[in-house]
């Protein structure tokens, strides 16, 4: 039974990991841009969450709304002011640009907050649990999985059904042809980056509610996001979700077996899947 509980907890954590990867994968799927800043931005959003929680009415969990809104704006500005200017055939300038930004952001946070670990206080919610089919589960992890699922489904539907979603998909398919129908693809890219950053920010705040973070956590967050996206098959929505679950379960099961190196087994699982199927889960299913 303890194993079932570990696996279920791994899946709950994995849903959040999937959300960590979603921002990175969404930006890549649409713009073929890998925003390396996203790992450190996740941490910055967590700091913003810590700052905003005292002013959040009703429940601290709702802090994700203002953080997501601010991050949406930051994402648009980032794309319009910086990344759009280095777009081109060569992907290297924008990767290096965002890498530079990540370093500035990380070291800026170290200067401001020191290297101590922080977390977002959600009051009693953090310690509440319930029994389900004989399993003891935390309320917060379940709520977080619910939020992650809702965001995945919401984004999926919005991309399928809405006018803006259609415009974004058209731009993703071929931004030059989209231009012929009067679409300014640079503006669309801004909105897509805003969404990506808002998703990452929500993930960052939720991670900070479940556990703790330091200004240096960005690197780990980026690696998780990246592994989720590659396991999922570069840009496939539900592949990413499966990728997150696989990582979460692997990590918790490995932690049980080998308490000192759970993280390492998550990385090894990533390599194993890359070895078995270069196109990730989505590639396996398609085959």
């Amino acid at each position: 039974m303890i194993w079932v509980e570990t696996i279920v907890n791994g899946m709950l954590l994995g849903g959040l990991y999937a959300l960590v990867g979603l921002g990175l994968g969404y930006a890549f799927g649409i713009m073929k841009i890998v925003n390396v800043t996203q790992g450190d931005f996740i941490v910055a959003a967590a700091f913003l969450g810590v700052f905003l929680v005292p002013w959040t009415p009703v429940h601290p969990l709702l802090v994700i709304v203002p953080v997501a809104a601010i991050s949406f704006g930051v994402g648009i500005l980032l794309q319009w002011l910086l990344i759009n200017r280095v777009l081109g055939q060569d992907p290297i300038p924008q990767i290096l640009l965002t890498f530079g930004l990540a370093i500035v952001l990380r070291n800026g946070m170290v200067e401001l907050y020191g290297a101590n670990s922080h977390s977002i206080d959600v009051g009693e919610l953090r310690f509440m649990g319930f029994d389900f089919l004989g399993l003891r589960l935390g309320v917060l992890p379940v709520v977080i999985l619910g939020i992650a699922l809702a965001l995945f489904a919401g984004l999926h539907l919005w991309m399928r059904r809405s006018r803006m979603g259609r415009i974004i998909r058209a731009t993703a398919d071929d931004h030059q042809v989209a231009q012929l129908s009067g679409i300014n693809y640079r503006r669309v890219y801004g909105i897509a980056m805003g969404i990506a950053m808002a998703l990452s920010a929500v993930a960052g705040v939720l991670l900070a509610m479940r556990g703790s973070f330091t200004p240096y956590s960005g690197a780990d967050r980026l690696l998780i996001a990246f592994e989720v996206v590659v396991i999922g098959g570069l840009g496939s929505f539900w592949g990413m979700f499966a990728g997150g679950i696989i990582l979460g379960v692997t990590q918790l099961v490995a932690l049980k077996l080998d308490p000192s190196s759970g993280l390492m087994w998550g990385h090894l699982m990533f390599l194993l899947i890359l070895f078995l199927s270069p196109n990730g889960i989505a590639g396996m299913v398609r085959r």
């Binding site: 890998v34 390396v36 992907p91 290297i92 990767i95 980026l222 690696l223 990246f226 592994e227 996206v229 590659v230 570069l234 190196s261 993280l263 390492m264 990385h267 090894l268 990533f270 390599l271 890359l274 070895f275 270069p278």
Partner: peptide
Amino acid sequence: PLVFRLRDAYFAISIWVIAEIVRLF
């Protein structure tokens, strides 16, 4: 043979992942 399956930023970060594995090991 493994990391060459990935391109650009994904190639870049996959080696970082391997560095983390070796460090933790």
